[in-house]
């Protein structure tokens, strides 16, 4: 199966690869997937506490090209969004942008889960 050009572009030049300090109060971390399923995504956001805007986002992903491209794209979209706007990102937006075939839709679902999980973590840290 051939990958779309956008997937290949993200795969070759992944945006925002890296690690944020998860001990910081304004950093939310989401780790989703499992090694035996062939996909693990870790997505992190760093939030400006006064404005509620996501200042930085980083990811690392173990998985196929579509999984890597989905998480790379997600970090691009997250930056500059408020936490609440970020929650509105839908996996089908990723499918559309990357032209993922049906068999790769689960990669976009995982990216959406990773976003939600990172935001949840951030919120949990900041509720107390």
């Amino acid at each position: 199966m051939a990958y779309s050009e956008k997937v290949i572009e993200h795969f070759k030049n992944p945006r925002n690869v890296g690690t944020l300090d998860k001990s910081k109060k304004n950093v939310g971390t989401g780790l989703v997937g499992a090694p035996e399923c062939g996909d693990v995504m870790r997505l992190q956001i760093e939030v400006d506490e006064t404005s509620g805007t996501i200042m930085d986002a980083k990811f690392k992903t173990f998985g196929c090209g579509s999984a890597i491209a989905s998480s790379s794209l997600a970090t691009e979209w997250l930056k500059g969004k408020t936490v609440d706007d970020a929650l509105a990102i839908d996996n089908m937006d990723i499918v559309e942008e990357l032209a993922l075939p049906p068999v790769k839709i689960h990669c976009s679902v995982l990216a959406e889960d990773a976003i939600k999980s990172a935001i949840e973590d951030y919120k949990a840290k900041n509720e107390a």
């Binding site: 690690t19 870790r42 173990f62 890597i68």
Partner: peptide
């Protein structure tokens, strides 16, 4: 690019991690 490679290098016991299976 691999988060589990990073965890492995940090000495995390990957078998003890509770994975969010999908």
């Amino acid at each position: 690019l691999s988060p589990i490679w990073e965890m492995f290098k940090e000495g995390v016991d990957l078998d003890s991690v509770v994975w969010a299976e999908h």
